[in-house]
């Protein structure tokens, strides 16, 4: 078990070290903030905009991260010969594929957790702004502290990552990602506390943010299936061909990826039950296993 854990750890570290993951998660956060702050397009519905931007950004950017990180990592291992090195040890092909996948997916979740917190902050801010506007009759704006918290979640980690790299020789992308997680979580918590103390937080604001969580969880299974598929394809095909195959596979999966149904459920005051997220996760397991097995079979058939 220990050997698979070290494969998973190496895969996670490799994914986190790649600046692409950081770039994608920062882009996702920027899209959420910008889409919500520029209220002029929103016809006074910044809360809907914040919610849709959060769900869409997480899905699109995380899927991109999972697919491209999988492909690049596997092709990089094949080209540099480290795959041969790993397989010359006593690890099974399936175990290797599964451990790599687990490490990569964990890294993707870690990279995108700050995006979730940022989205929740902005949603909270949009709702608070909406309530304030309803009372004053002004145009609804996203609550200032929420924008500040979200902006801090983007800028502080980048600066901290640079500082860690400059003064402690730490990897920029890894330290920035870890810092983003910490800053966004703390910002969200501080925002909740501040809202409560400012008498702005109403029960529905809090519950609306919490209702997002199962909806976000529902986005993870398709991303996991995509990551497993990308890994399997890249054992056999080159980078471009694997990316194209993933694109085709993604188009085929598109109906299942649509989060607008979730948005509508949430918009009507409903919530996505956690059970649905569990069911989706369970339904994705056979697909992930099938792709891991396919990856192992392709690896078995590969002359290295």
């Amino acid at each position: 078990m220990r050997r698979y854990r070290s494969i998973a750890r190496a895969a996670a570290l490799e994914t986190l070290s790649d600046p692409l993951g950081l770039l994608l998660s920062v882009s996702a956060m920027a899209v959420i903030v910008l889409a919500s702050v520029f209220h002029i397009h929103q016809f006074g519905e910044s809360w809907r905009m914040a919610r849709d931007a959060t769900l869409s950004s997480i899905l699109v950017f995380m899927a991109l991260d999972a697919v491209f990180s999988s492909i690049r990592a596997v092709r990089g291992e094949i080209e540099s010969g480290t795959l041969q090195m790993a397989l010359s040890h006593s690890v099974s092909r399936f175990g290797y594929c599964a451990a790599r996948f687990a490490g990569l997916f964990a890294a993707c979740i870690l990279s995108f957790a700050p995006v979730v917190f940022t989205g929740l902050s902005i949603i909270l801010g949009a709702q608070a702004g909406g309530i304030a506007a309803a009372q004053s009759g002004d145009i609804p704006l996203v609550w200032g502290p929420a924008v500040a918290a979200a902006s801090a979640s983007i800028t502080i980690p980048l600066l901290a990552g640079a500082a860690m790299n400059r003064f402690a020789n730490a990897r920029f992308a890894v330290s920035a990602t870890v810092c983003a997680l910490a800053v966004s979580a703390v910002s969200y918590a501080a925002l909740l506390f501040y809202a409560r103390s400012s008498q702005i937080a109403m029960p529905e604001i809090h519950s609306a943010a919490l209702r997002m969580l199962p909806a976000i969880a529902l986005l993870l299974p398709p991303v996991a299936v995509l990551a497993a598929a990308a890994q399997a394809f890249s054992f056999r095909f080159g980078e471009n061909a694997s990316a194209t195959l993933c694109g085709v596979f993604c188009i085929a999966m598109l109906p299942a990826l649509g989060n607008h149904y979730l948005s509508e459920t949430l918009a009507e005051g409903g919530s996505v039950p956690w059970g649905y997220a569990g069911l989706a996760a369970a339904a994705s397991v056979p697909f992930v296993l099938a792709f891991l097995a396919a990856g192992a079979a392709l690896l078995e058939a590969k002359d290295m």
Partner: peptide, 15 residues
């Protein structure tokens, strides 16, 4: 498609 830029806030004008 941007509507009246004079009605927007400073942030909107910046965007």
């Amino acid at each position: 498609s941007y509507p009246d830029p004079l009605e927007g806030s400073k942030v909107d004008r910046m965007s």
